[in-house]
Computed example of a mutant assay.
Amino acid sequence: MSSCDTCVVRNRAICAALDNHEIEALNGIGRQRQLQAGDPLIWEGEDSMLVANVIDGILKLTNCTEDGREQIVGVVYPADFIGRPFGAKSHHSVTALTDAKVCLFARSDFDRFASDHPALEHKLLKRTLDELDRTRAWMLLLARKSAEEKVATFLLDMSERLVDTACESPQGGPMDHFELPFSRQQIGDVLGLTIETVSRQMTRMKRDGILDLPTRRTVRICDRAALEAMAG
């Protein structure tokens, strides 16, 4: 595994809570793994064997319905933590949406390490609470917001989270120009909308000068204030 000193997410991942000696110890139980888009990492319902820090790329969390349909229930980005520490089963599958690199740990090794390092456990707790806040916000989006509000909120969220997967804007804030890791169909699956509704909303935003859409995956936000107003 390459040196943690050169890791691009070193200061933002959960291991930021550790000193250099502790990082060296954590380094000894981990390994890096490259994933191609579409590669699975964790399977829903299986024993919780792995946890990981995302170094690069984007991965999706999914559940399957009884009739075999896939539902995207979350997305993880660089510096995010994935897996189920201190748990027996994995409650969702994890699959690479784009080419990705992860720092991988056996769950049992990581559990023992975390138990011996309270600062790391504290960081894990904070991440869990932040994820709970995002989940509650997402419940509001799915339950109460209109199609227009859903798509606008989704694009704003992407612009804020994707800042770490490309060069940051000069001000260090959200990206106004980015590549979506999702197809229109996947956006619809995430938001509970049809692909036609997603396309119609994005086309309308382009017509109104709020967005520019050079390709089906490229988004340029031309009027952030209007997009924020649209998101409610």
Rank of each mutant, 00 (worst) to 15 (best):
Q36D: 09
D67Q: 11
G188W: 03
Q171S: 15
D208N: 12
V163P: 00
G68Y: 09
S115Q: 13
L141G: 05
R112G: 02
L142R: 14
I195M: 05
L156I: 14
A25Y: 01
L213T: 09
T197E: 07
D56N: 09
L191E: 05
E70S: 10
L26T: 02
V73P: 02
A231W: 08
I210S: 07
G173N: 10
S108N: 07
V73Y: 03
E121N: 12
H21C: 03
H21V: 13
N27G: 04
A100W: 06
L129Q: 14
D223R: 15
A119V: 07
M230P: 01
R31H: 11
T62M: 07
D130Q: 14
S146H: 04
L141A: 13
A16K: 11
G173V: 01
L41W: 12
G74W: 04
D223I: 10
M230S: 15
K60D: 08
K89M: 02
F86E: 07
P40K: 06
L35M: 10
L41I: 09
P85R: 00
A13R: 08
D133K: 11
V151N: 11
T128C: 08
D39W: 01
V219D: 11
K145M: 12
A13L: 00
T165K: 01
L227I: 07
D223H: 15
C167L: 14
